[in-house]
Design a protein around this nucleic acid. Sequence first.
DNA 1: CGCCGGTCCATGCGTACGCATCGACTCTCG
DNA 2: CGAGAGTCGATGCGTACGCATGGACCGGCG
Lengths: 160, 160
Amino acid sequence: MTEGARELPGTREAAEAWESLFRAQVALMRRFQRDDVWGDLSIREYDVLFTLSGCPDGTARLRDLGENSLLTQPSLSRMVERLEQDGLVRRGPVEGDARGVAVALTQDGWRVQREIGRRHVRTIRRLVGGALDAQELATLQALTDKLRAAQAGIPDESDA
Amino acid sequence: MTEGARELPGTREAAEAWESLFRAQVALMRRFQRDDVWGDLSIREYDVLFTLSGCPDGTARLRDLGENSLLTQPSLSRMVERLEQDGLVRRGPVEGDARGVAVALTQDGWRVQREIGRRHVRTIRRLVGGALDAQELATLQALTDKLRAAQAGIPDESDA
DNA sequence: CGCCGGTCCATGCGTACGCATCGACTCTCG
DNA sequence: CGAGAGTCGATGCGTACGCATGGACCGGCG
């Protein structure tokens, strides 16, 4: 603490860590986007398929899909509509809640996700695995997992 | 290595680290977006102002701005056009290259960036600083800096 | 000097996005 | 059981986006 400014402890550290995290994500994302592995769909659409592929039966509620996405609810709703027209997902009712929409991967959806994922993971290995060793990767994963998990416990506004 | 699959060493570790990093970024970004600190401009527009605020004289070439952004060149071009109409930046010629466009923060641009930045950094401190301690933040920053820096040295295609 | 490939930014165009809102349904509570 | 608040997803509408392309300029080479 060499400055005289009455800065709350940890503010600079937090801001700089976030900026580094954000910039790293942007730099990698730019390269992933340029990568020629996405076929006909956008990286955001792939992300939805990927999320579904990690859900039981490749199925999730529209609402739950939105939790892991930066898209707004209307945008996600229309994206799923397009994915259904492309035959990659199917929309159906939710057991026990007539408001809900269940989104499920079709056979084609599984296949497309697997094919793109296989190519994509190769790029990840090259760009991420080529930058950090196994120990560093484990540490990075632990820290970002912790960072993400903690968000659930922090309220929207701090002014108690 | 307990699996029989012929998986290249480090592939899973790299993929899992990237997914954790990505999800953490999405989770934080969602909360930042909901945060009521952005005034009239989008988070992407603020990011441009923030980048400019870290450049000498608050000035950068359009091309260089694009390097730190996920936006395409045409989108960035039009965003800067809007920011100029809003009086936040000024476009001018580049010394020694008549093709280039220099983007500079105006007085209003500096002020708006500072005001939003001040509020935003408070949220960062709460959500990021509230999740990791100083040591962890330093480690996270070091790893993501290294990850980002390494991208410059990795070619687009690996198939030599 | 004149040409030619490469770079930099702008523009036409179709599409996906976010915001506001709506209709349908669920849940709570009197 | 019925009313009102809350949740979930769809839709109208204006706008920002990405893709393809164009025009201006730079740099190298004959």
